[in-house]
């Protein structure tokens, strides 16, 4: 009997959290541009996220492109299809690796920091203080974070795509002996705008997922140091799982 009771409790908790999360998203849209929109605060947060994330974005792009070129060569050289490497690198990066790896890296870099910051604010009563100062925390905390990440991720993905292709170029030309002009020509000729746009659409969705999940985990964290730790872990784990699973459905959409 106790076993069934525990299962019931667990299921109730799961559905109650899903319900709370859906309500949270609805409230986000309700308060997106009102009652107040703190323009300066939004711009400041966007710049902060943008500048602090550039180094890891650059590293993600360059190493992904370089590894992709090397691994593609290993496979393609077995049936003399080395000339397809520029095509594979650019297609894989723009359609798949760019948005997914950027999403996962930003979830670890920014999502965790959003969750930890908001959870700490909750533990130290700063969220209550906002309410007493007649400030809507959706407007002040959630909107800047969600808008910034949703808008920044497509820019990050564009950078990862570009730097990744350059990484593939460096390895292919200087390590594998490709002709430099031919490599670039193949890349540009093969890439269609739809490939790039499908990746950008994914980036918008991933940016929204990371930011909304992280804000939710922070705002509804348990109290104390343990609560802050769990909020951070949950934010990264849940957004990573949602990125990977939604990626499949988005890929089906653009297939």
């Amino acid at each position: 009997m106790k076993f069934i009771e525990n299962i019931g409790k667990a299921l109730t908790s799961i559905f109650s959290n899903i319900g709370k999360f859906i309500l949270f998203i609805l409230f986000f849209f309700k308060y997106l541009f009102g009652p107040k929109f703190y323009f300066k605060n939004n711009i400041r947060y966007f710049l902060n996220v943008f500048v602090s994330s550039i180094p890891i974005i650059a590293l993600t792009g360059i190493f992904s492109g370089m590894v992709l070129a090397l691994q593609s060569y290993t496979g393609f050289s077995r049936f003399s299809a080395e000339s397809a490497i520029p095509n594979v690198v650019v297609l894989t990066l723009t359609r798949e690796l760019g948005p997914v790896l950027t999403g996962l890296m930003i979830s670890a870099r920014v999502g965790s920091s959003i969750a930890a910051e908001i959870a700490t604010m909750r533990v130290t009563e700063q969220i209550d203080a906002l309410k007493t100062l007649n400030t809507n925390y959706y407007n002040y905390l959630v909107t800047p974070r969600v808008l910034s990440l949703t808008l920044a991720l497509p820019i990050f993905v564009t950078l990862v795509d570009f730097i990744g292709v350059m990484g593939g170029y460096i390895v292919s030309v200087h390590r594998l002996g490709f002709n430099d002009n031919l490599y670039l020509l193949n890349t540009i000729d093969f890439l269609k705008i739809g490939d790039y746009l499908s990746g950008i659409f994914k980036a918008f969705v991933f940016g929204f997922i990371i930011s909304i999940v992280s804000c939710y985990c922070g705002l509804f964290s348990d109290k104390g140091a343990f609560g802050v730790g769990s909020a951070t872990t949950n934010a990264v784990v849940i957004s990573s799982i949602l990125i990977l699973s939604s990626n499949y459905f988005l890929t089906e959409l653009f297939f």
């Binding site: 130290t124 009563e125 700063q126 209550d128 203080a129 007493t132 007649n134």
Partner: peptide, 16 residues
Amino acid sequence: DIDKFSMLFQYGALFD
């Protein structure tokens, strides 16, 4: 109107 109220929190709750 809660604008007529103010609160001093236990640990200040200042925005870091």
